[in-house]
Amino acid sequence: MESATLLSIFIGGLLLGITGYSLYTAFGPVSKELRDPFEEHED
């Protein structure tokens, strides 16, 4: 394979991995531990 193809596959995989991890953090079981600072200061 050419180096440009390998680089594009690597960057695409990295992008998908970061996106998947951020979605898991935002909506997965870990999200129960997140706090909302704006909600804490509402009157």
Rank of each mutant, 00 (worst) to 15 (best):
M1R: 07
M1D: 02
M1H: 05
M1T: 03
E2G: 08
S3A: 14
S3K: 09
S3G: 02
A4D: 07
A4I: 15
T5E: 09
L6P: 01
L7K: 12
L7W: 08
L7H: 03
S8F: 12
S8T: 10
S8R: 13
I9D: 05
I9G: 00
I9Y: 08
F10Q: 10
F10P: 01
I11T: 13
I11H: 03
I11L: 14
G12N: 07
G12W: 00
G12Y: 01
G13T: 06
G13H: 01
G13N: 07
G13Y: 02
L14F: 14
L14C: 10
L14D: 06
L15V: 08
L15A: 15
L15F: 14
L15M: 14
L15D: 02
L16D: 02
L16I: 04
L16W: 07
L16H: 02
L16A: 13
G17R: 03
G17H: 02
I18Y: 14
I18Q: 10
I18K: 08
T19K: 10
T19G: 14
G20T: 03
G20P: 00
G20R: 04
G20Q: 03
Y21K: 05
Y21D: 01
Y21Q: 03
S22T: 05
S22H: 08
S22V: 03
L23T: 02
L23D: 02
Y24D: 07
Y24T: 03
Y24W: 15
Y24L: 09
T25Q: 14
T25W: 09
T25M: 13
T25P: 00
T25E: 15
A26Y: 06
A26T: 05
A26G: 01
A26F: 08
A26W: 08
A26S: 08
F27M: 05
F27V: 01
G28S: 05
G28L: 04
G28W: 01
P29R: 14
P29M: 08
P29H: 04
P29E: 12
V30W: 07
V30H: 09
V30M: 10
V30G: 10
V30L: 10
V30F: 08
S31F: 04
S31N: 04
S31H: 08
S31T: 06
S31E: 14
K32D: 06
K32P: 00
E33G: 00
E33H: 06
E33C: 01
L34A: 12
L34V: 01
L34T: 07
R35S: 05
R35Q: 15
R35D: 10
R35P: 01
R35M: 02
R35E: 15
D36L: 09
D36S: 10
D36M: 07
D36T: 02
D36Q: 07
P37L: 15
P37Q: 11
P37Y: 08
P37S: 13
P37W: 11
P37M: 12
F38H: 03
F38M: 13
F38P: 00
E39F: 06
E39C: 01
E39Q: 14
E40A: 14
E40V: 04
H41V: 14
H41R: 14
H41Y: 11
E42M: 13
E42C: 07
E42Q: 14
E42H: 11
D43R: 04
D43G: 04
D43A: 10
D43T: 00
D43C: 00
D43S: 09
